[in-house]
Nucleic acid binder design. Structure first.
Lengths: 196, 196
DNA sequence: CTATTTTTGAACTAAATAGTACATAAAGCC
DNA sequence: GGCTTTATGTACTATTTAGTTCAAAAATAG
């Protein structure tokens, strides 16, 4: 990278953004105050406002990064273990996380969708857009699984994708509402049935 | 009611609580600042702190009231139109609300579950308790519908109740994530299939 | 070396937050 | 009527919030 004039940046913008994304993911948007967020990002306030325009702008970029990264990871998983298995793996990772840590981070888009719904129309709109990419990715994945015969259900892939993603969101919300384990185990089984 | 000594209350505690519950339902807990909440409740700050211990205590009572009221309304609906129809009606009310207002208020317990999950462990725990009452109510309702033959599915009512409530939550979250109408319509159909 | 450009550190600001203090108002009791 | 008790209105407080200001630091260009 070409070195320009002026004092060189001490902070790595991409790294700071990635750290912010993780902090938002764990704590939500409003609950991630700058006083807590900045130490987590490893930068000081002046550098922050010099690099990012505002907290809202940072969050917007974090949402975008989250979508890109998560999709990249999912595609890697799909390449590795096949379409249907990858879809099932998402559910199993979630249940494993719950068992290991007693909580789930869930999906940044889903929790942001809830948090921004009444308060930040602009962010809420962006959540909607990013969400469509997940729908498309899952549709494409289910299509692959149907073609390979991994999924027998002949319902059009788009509809199955909607059902899958909604069942996944339902599971996450039901976990966070504090439902007992037996209910959650049944929901997991139910999601797998969508993919039969 | 017996009049005690001292200046009589100008505000009706039950009414103020009901108004608070509705405001929380529409705006969430954190987003309902006292400065906005108090006018909505129709009382002044001094009366508020005299009547309710704190904002958290008020919210806790609002959660409780929400559960009681919502269940009462559901049971009335069930008495009026039968178990299965009442379960379907919840979904249709939601879709109608979306069509009429462009938004959904959703379920106070579900959104509070999300909001309190990382921030207010005590409230989060209460959400979990109240949530169990809904599970039980739906289980009982599905049991009724099975007995009457309205629901043919022989899966044990408790499991169907979990699936129903999770599908409902999935629908709400998917709405708030901004999914397109065709996806939502299919989810509605999917919920009805659970009750076949 | 000096001027210019960009980044950073520390202190500050304005607004919003939940909650308090205290005097005053309005009732019953004797 | 005066004393006690309870409710209310006004003003205040301490903390937290996102965001700004401005001088000092650190690099390059000439």
């Amino acid at each position: 990278m070409k070195q320009t004039r002026g004092r060189p940046k001490a902070c790595d913008e991409d790294e700071a953004l990635a750290l912010a994304m993780n902090y938002f993911w764990e704590h939500g948007y409003d609950n991630a105050s700058l006083d807590k967020l900045l130490p987590a990002m490893g930068i000081k306030k002046s550098s922050f406002y010099h690099t990012f325009k505002s907290k809202e702008e940072l969050f917007s970029r974090a949402l975008h990064l989250y979508r890109e990264e998560t999709q990249k990871e999912f595609i890697a998983l799909r390449d590795e273990m096949g379409a249907k298995n990858a879809l099932i793996m998402i559910v199993e990772f979630t249940m494993q996380e719950l068992q290991d840590t007693g909580k789930v981070k869930g999906c940044l888009l889903v929790s942001s969708g809830q948090e921004c719904y009444n308060k930040y129309p602009h962010l809420s709109q962006q959540v909607g857009q990013e969400f469509l990419y997940f729908l498309k990715l899952f549709e494409e994945t289910i299509q692959m699984a149907q073609t390979k015969g991994e999924i027998k259900n002949t319902l059009v892939a788009k509809r199955l994708a909607g059902r899958y993603i909604s069942a996944l969101n339902g599971l996450l919300v039901t976990i966070q509402a504090g439902a007992p384990k037996e209910v959650l185990d049944d929901l997991m089984e139910n999601i797998k049935e969508i993919l039969e």
